[in-house]
């Protein structure tokens, strides 16, 4: 569980959540082709496109290539994604030609549980055959994790999510450490960066373990330790993450306000009957 109330992480002019999204957005480059997961990854990827990376190509698994939504989609296949896309292909084509074909530079994912090697669980809490909590499952992630050039992950940091051992390996990170991906015939880099509301972790080139390389302003190393389920390592030269700029915050808040207005109420009021 989280060790401190959310309020203590709130700066005077931006929230921890905003810090996370801005930091995650910065990881994307202008010439990336990004396969976007729904939720936090989608928020970060669109913020990147609206700020420093206008040339960024966004791809959603529903088949939309080069989409430029003005509001964040609630689902992976909202009409907005198709209407603003360069082209929309079938789902088999998306997974066969574009993902498996090696056309994607970055897969941007979230997770319910993650371990120090970036292996992701979105399937079950507890035993697969007798789950305590049945989560939605893998969707596109198992092949995104192995077919994209590299993987970025964005998720809120807590002991419940950042665990020593995940209950189910939905999507491969670095397995049990260096060399595992290669042994499985995977030639892509796997998880390289993890952006949370507390810090940035990057994958150690030698061990492949996630190491804290940048701490967000106002966050202490103790907070990170308290919210990580494994014995977390820090780089020798840990940086302080730059604060969100006015332009980044304005773009993010505009995006969220437009999204909120677009998704407000059932169109037909059926629930109220």
């Amino acid at each position: 569980m989280r060790q401190r109330p959310e309020g203590e992480r709130t700066m005077s002019d931006y929230s921890a959540q905003e810090m996370m999204s801005v930091t995650a957005a910065r990881a994307l480059r202008n010439d990336d082709v990004c396969f976007v997961g729904i939720g936090l990854p989608s928020e970060a990827a669109n913020l990147a496109r609206l700020t420093h990376a206008p040339g960024l190509t966004l791809i959603y698994e529903s088949g939309t290539l080069g989409t430029q939504p003005s509001v964040l989609p609630l689902s992976i296949g909202d009409g907005e994604l198709c209407e603003t896309a360069l082209t929309t292909v079938s789902v088999p084509e998306m997974f066969r030609y574009w993902l498996q074909g090696g056309r994607i530079t970055v897969g941007f994912l979230g997770a319910a549980q993650i371990d120090r090697f970036g292996n992701i669980n979105t399937t079950v809490v507890g035993e697969y055959g007798d789950p305590k909590v049945r989560l939605p499952g893998g969707g596109g992630a198992p092949e995104i994790a192995t077919s994209c050039g590299e993987i970025f992950i964005v998720m809120r940091q807590s002991k419940r999510g950042f665990v020593d051992k995940i209950d189910f390996v939905t999507s491969l990170g670095h397995g049990t450490g260096a060399g595992d991906r290669e042994r499985l015939g995977v030639t892509t880099r796997g998880p390289t960066r993890l952006m949370s509301d507390l810090c940035i972790m990057t994958s150690d080139p030698e061990t492949k373990e996630f190491v804290v390389t940048s701490i967000h302003p106002g966050i202490t190393a103790e907070q990170i330790v308290e919210n990580t389920g494994w014995t977390v390592r820090f780089a020798l030269d840990v940086e302080e993450t730059p604060r969100p700029t006015k332009a980044e915050l304005a773009a993010l808040r505009d995006l969220k306000a437009r999204t909120e207005a677009a998704h407000r109420v059932p169109q037909t009021g059926e629930a109220a009957e």
Partner: peptide, 8 residues
């Protein structure tokens, strides 16, 4: 297809 590598 090329898939399920390392996936449980």
């Amino acid at each position: 297809f090329r898939g399920y590598r390392g996936a449980e």
